[in-house]
Lab assay of single mutants.
Amino acid sequence: TEHYTFHTEEQAQRAAKKFKKQGLPVTIHEKNGKFTLQVN
């Protein structure tokens, strides 16, 4: 499991699309105004 932190939801969504294209499951969590992208 890898985690990436982004300052905006837009950045997180863009990164999520790249991972999803590779067939990886992705979840985004919002915490304290930051967005954490979790790749399993």
Rank of each mutant, 00 (worst) to 15 (best):
H29Q: 10
G23Y: 03
F19H: 03
A15Y: 07
T8P: 00
K18S: 07
K31H: 13
H3C: 15
I28V: 07
K21E: 14
V39M: 06
N40Q: 10
Q22G: 05
H3S: 12
E10I: 08
N32M: 04
N40H: 13
V26F: 07
H7D: 15
Q11E: 14
Q38T: 15
T5S: 08
L37F: 05
H29D: 06
T8Y: 04
P25D: 15
Q11G: 08
K17M: 10
F19N: 01
F6Y: 11
G23S: 03
T8I: 04
G23I: 01
A16V: 04
L24T: 06
F6R: 00
K18Q: 09
Y4M: 08
L37R: 01
Q38I: 15
E30R: 09
Q13W: 07
H3T: 12
Y4P: 05
F19Q: 01
T8N: 06
T5V: 13
A12T: 01
Q13N: 08
K18A: 09
L37S: 02
Q13F: 07
E9H: 10
R14W: 05
K20W: 11
L37A: 03
F35H: 04
Q13V: 10
E10N: 06
Q13S: 06
F19D: 01
Q11W: 05
E30T: 06
V26S: 04
V26P: 01
H3M: 12
T27N: 05
Q38K: 06
E2G: 11
H29G: 07
K31D: 11
K17W: 07
Q22C: 15
K34E: 11
G33I: 00
K31Q: 11
R14V: 08
H29S: 12
T5P: 05
F35M: 02
E2D: 11
E9W: 15
G23M: 03
G23E: 02
I28R: 00
K17T: 09
L24E: 02
Q11K: 06
T8R: 03
T36P: 02
F6A: 01
E9F: 15
P25H: 15
P25V: 15
N40G: 14
T36I: 15
T5H: 14
T27C: 12
E30N: 09
I28M: 05
Q13Y: 08
Q38P: 01
Y4D: 04
T1V: 12
N32W: 03
K20L: 14
K31Y: 12
N32F: 05
A15F: 08
K34S: 09
L37V: 14
A12F: 01
A16P: 00
A12N: 00
K17G: 07
G33H: 03
Q22V: 08
E2L: 14
N40V: 12
F19I: 06
Q38L: 13
E30F: 13
Q38N: 07
P25I: 15
T1P: 10
V26I: 06
T8K: 04
L24M: 09
K34R: 10
V26H: 03
F35G: 02
H7N: 13
F19K: 02
K20S: 10
Y4L: 10
K17N: 12
Q38M: 13
P25S: 15
E10Y: 07
I28T: 01
E2A: 11
K31E: 13
A12I: 02
T36W: 14
Y4E: 05
T8S: 09
K34M: 12
L37I: 13
V26M: 03
R14Y: 06
G33Q: 02
F35S: 02
V39I: 12
K34Q: 11
T5R: 05
T1L: 13
T27F: 09
Y4C: 14
E2I: 13
H3V: 12
K21W: 06
E2F: 13
K21G: 08
Q11V: 04
L24Y: 10
Y4W: 11
T5I: 14
T1E: 10
V26C: 09
N40A: 11
Q11N: 05
G33R: 01
I28A: 01
T5N: 06
L24Q: 05
Q13P: 00
Q11P: 01
G23W: 02
K21Y: 06
K18V: 09
A12W: 01
V39Y: 05
K20Y: 08
A16E: 04
